[in-house]
Design a protein around this nucleic acid. Structure first.
Length: 758
DNA sequence: TGGTAGAGGATTTTT
DNA sequence: TCCTCTACCA
């Protein structure tokens, strides 16, 4: 191979070094927008081009399916056709792939089901009822979180039980539920999400022959977003990068003499400033202590940013530099300073959304396509006012993430049928469909079946076949036989392959579509469409994965995330949470809701390091922008249908003031702080370009302790004159119900509403 | 067993 | 505010 591969062209010296380095361990510290995907894909292609690796020896792990697909695509482009044998996937998919082959070692069948978090919550809920732990104040969500946390730390039910304080009845009940939960999963031949990784680690630890097979297979392991790995994922990587033990080889490898024994090379890419998943077990120490874990590791820093303008970077750097516990890093760009960061304070969430909608139209007129614009928020609930305003303003948008397609009840029902067919031991899925659609098999019947199954040591599915031995009414018996026949026929059909045909059979025989279509309810129509959409998905799956089969399809369905839906072709603005935004980039970005309690989120304040993680979250959001960055907040926020006053986020003051171009009056608090520091006072300047933003409403004001009582007449900046009908609440939360002659009744927060008493 | 109404509860981020 | 669960009635 010639020394100057085309793969190195156009790379900066650090990137080049990262592509060319050959050694056991490499840490690439990649700041936001520093071209890490480029480096990773070029490194993979370069390994192959230089014959340092065969495609089959590569294992590349990403955080999302979308990132994996993108990486596969780009490697494919660089190399041509040879991507086939590479494993480029998420942790979970890679583990599923290993477990599908090796499940029997763990006493599982290859057809195992994968339970997502709502499945496992449903199971935990039932167990809480069964064990009576419910009455001790245990809630499904809390127990689920504890079990998940334990599994991410590679603690099984026994270890969990050993580790608890015996005086804590709470924990001992949880331990009991944990134990039962795990038994139930095993009996159902099912893994939950966390098991996929944890059980793979146990597999590699307990079966050296298996471990050595994979160590031999994967000579080059690359991990993206390493700062987000949790302990179990970290241990998985450790197991795979141990030296090969020649004393424990699978038979087919044992006869080979030329076998290497050195460990696989490991490349990790990450940025501790973008660690935003500590709440779900991501351990930032994995990346911080990489050099200690892998002595002799090479470290390469990528600090040149190719995405954003300098102003955007300065704003982001200003925020992140307030995290004292980080290694200082200096992101720079040669792109020039660019535009200032637009900022806006709305009177309420709708007003803020209106600012966003107006700015989006401005951008579109000047040539930015909708698909290059995105709106970020901290919590999904914030999307509602934005959607309302966008719909009214005819801004085409798509909400990314949130409720997944596969989380919709009717889709889950159909999937539960397929799971019951693929894995007859799966009692959770079988319970779900037992009476779906309604066929008269209620809780009482279900309980009888369960008792019978337990006493006869049968699975629930087998118990169904023995209905005649149970004291049940003739109607119920007949219905159970109908269900059993459907499942049996579907199973026979599944053996021949086609997923879509199996689903079609289930749809026909259960009559779901017909029953949805029979009603007038438009929601039922939507349900029918979702079921048809699922059918279309199965057909597409067969095309893409002719060998996948039912089990393969179900695994894919279980592992897709909301982000994976994002396709770049649609000409719409993307709405998503800041978490979802990680790894994406847009020409224009709107970061909304910069308010105390929302960002940082109030719940995070109680967690250790919580505020720092929130700050990193904002950093991630800001660095998604290529050319235009907008930040906004609102003086009041609807929370559970209640309107509350909102204070500007502490992070707002961390963005250098000279970078901000206020499109409204700046918030009072931030402005005061700045004038105290001696910088120019915003309040002296008239708001710039105010007219440009039609519909914008003047910023948050403070009416002090304005007292209103029913009967008073007021004037509102937007709604005109109105009469106070009622006053509720005290102090800063006092609200007035006002009847406006032209706008009807509105509830206003007296302290901040743009009103004057007449 | 199924449907409905009413109360109550819940709301961070998700591979 | 909205969604879910429960209790009660047909």
């Amino acid at each position: 191979m010639n020394a100057h591969s085309a793969l190195l062209e156009g790379l900066n010296p650090q990137q080049k070094a990262a592509v060319e380095y050959r050694g056991d361990a490499l840490l690439i510290v990649a700041g936001a927008g520093s071209g890490k995907t480029r480096v990773l894909t070029h490194r993979i292609a370069h390994l192959i081009e230089t014959r340092d690796a065969w495609p089959s020896q590569i294992l590349a792990i990403t955080f999302t399916n979308k990132a994996a697909a993108e990486m596969r695509e780009r490697v494919h482009q660089l190399l041509g056709e040879t991507g086939e044998w590479m494993w480029i996937s998420t942790f979970h998919s890679a583990c599923v792939r290993i477990l599908r082959k090796e499940a029997e070692h763990l006493g599982y069948l290859k057809s195992f089901s994968i339970y997502d978090s709502s499945d496992s919550r449903a199971l935990i809920k039932r167990l809480l009822k069964d064990t009576g732990a419910e009455y001790h104040g245990l809630k499904p969500g809390g127990v689920q979180a504890m079990i998940s946390k334990a599994k991410n730390e590679l603690k099984d039910a026994d270890a969990f039980a050993r580790g608890i304080d015996s005086n804590n009845p709470y924990a001992s009940y949880t331990a009991e539920v944990f134990r039962r939960y795990q038994e139930e999963l095993r009996a159902s031949n099912a893994f939950d999400f966390d098991d996929l990784v944890a059980e793979t680690v146990y597999l590699l630890r307990d079966f050296p022959e298996v471990a050595n097979r994979y160590r031999h297979r994967f000579r080059h392991i690359l991990v993206d977003e390493y700062q987000d790995t949790n302990h179990a994922q970290y241990q998985l990587i450790r197991e795979l990068t141990r030296p090969i033990d020649p004393m424990h080889l699978p038979e087919d490898l044992a006869i080979r003499r030329d076998l290497p024994t050195n460990p696989a090379s490991l490349t990790v890419v990450g940025d501790s400033d973008q660690s935003i998943y500590a709440f779900r077990g991501a351990d930032i120490r994995n990346i911080v202590e990489f050099e200690r874990d892998f002595p002799g590791a090479q470290v390469i820093l990528l600090e040149q940013n190719y995405r954003s303008t300098q102003n955007i970077l300065d704003a982001a750097n200003g925020v992140i530099s307030h995290n004292f516990d980080r290694k200082d890093k200096n992101l720079w760009t040669s792109a020039g300073s660019g535009e200032l960061v637009s900022a806006y304070v709305g009177y309420n969430g709708h007003d803020e959304a209106q600012f966003v909608a107006d700015a989006i139209e401005q951008l579109r007129i000047t040539g930015t396509p909708y698909r290059e614009m995105a709106v970020f928020y901290r919590v999904n609930a914030q999307s509602r006012p934005i959607e309302e305003v966008f719909t009214r303003a005819a801004v085409p948008y798509r909400v990314i993430g949130g409720t997944r397609f596969y989380d919709r009840a009717e889709v889950k029902d159909a999937i539960a049928y397929l799971l019951s067919v693929a894995n007859p031991l799966d009692s959770l899925s079988l319970r779900r469909i037992l009476n779906t659609p309604k066929r008269g098999i209620g809780p009482a019947t279900e309980a009888q079946l369960q008792v019978y199954a337990e006493t006869q040591h049968l699975s629930l599915r087998q118990a169904l076949a023995h209905v005649d031995e149970l004291p049940l009414g003739p109607k119920v018996v007949a219905e159970i036989k109908v269900l059993t026949a459907i499942l049996d026929d579907a199973e026979a059909l599944a053996a021949e392959g086609k997923v879509s045909e199996v689903l079609q059979l289930i749809i026909d025989r259960t009559g779901v579509l017909r029953s949805y279509r029979a009603t007038r309810d438009p929601q039922d129509e939507a349900r029918a469409e979702n079921v048809e959409e699922l059918l279309a998905v199965t057909i597409e799956y067969e095309k893409q994965n002719p060998e996948g089969g039912l089990v393969g399809f179900l695994a894919e369905a279980a592992l897709v995330a909301g982000v994976d839906d994002l396709d770049d072709e649609s000409g719409t603005v993307s709405l998503m949470t800041m978490h979802t935004a990680k790894g994406l980039e847009f020409d224009a970005v709107f970061v909304t809701g910069l308010e105390e309690g929302l960002l940082p989120h109030r719940i995070s304040l109680g967690e250790p390091g919580g505020v720092n993680e929130e700050r990193r979250l904002l950093y991630v959001a800001l660095t998604r922008a290529k050319k235009n960055l907008h930040i906004s907040l609102s003086g009041s926020r609807a929370v559970y249908g209640d309107i509350e006053a909102a204070a500007p986020s502490r992070f707002l003051d961390e963005i250098p003031a000279e970078l901000l171009n206020w499109k409204s009056r700046p918030p009072r608090k931030a402005a005061e702080d700045r004038s105290l520091l001696g910088t120019s006072s915003w309040q002296d300047d008239p708001p710039k370009q105010k007219i440009e933003w039609k519909n914008s409403i003047s910023s948050v004001r403070d009416n002090g302790d304005l007292q209103l009582s029913p009967g008073d007449r007021i004037n509102h900046d937007n709604y005109g004159q109105g009469r106070v009908m009622d006053v509720t609440g005290e102090g800063s939360k006092a609200k007035a119900v006002v009847d406006f002659s032209n706008f009807g009744r509105k509830t206003l927060l007296i302290k901040i509403a743009p009103i004057t008493k007449l």
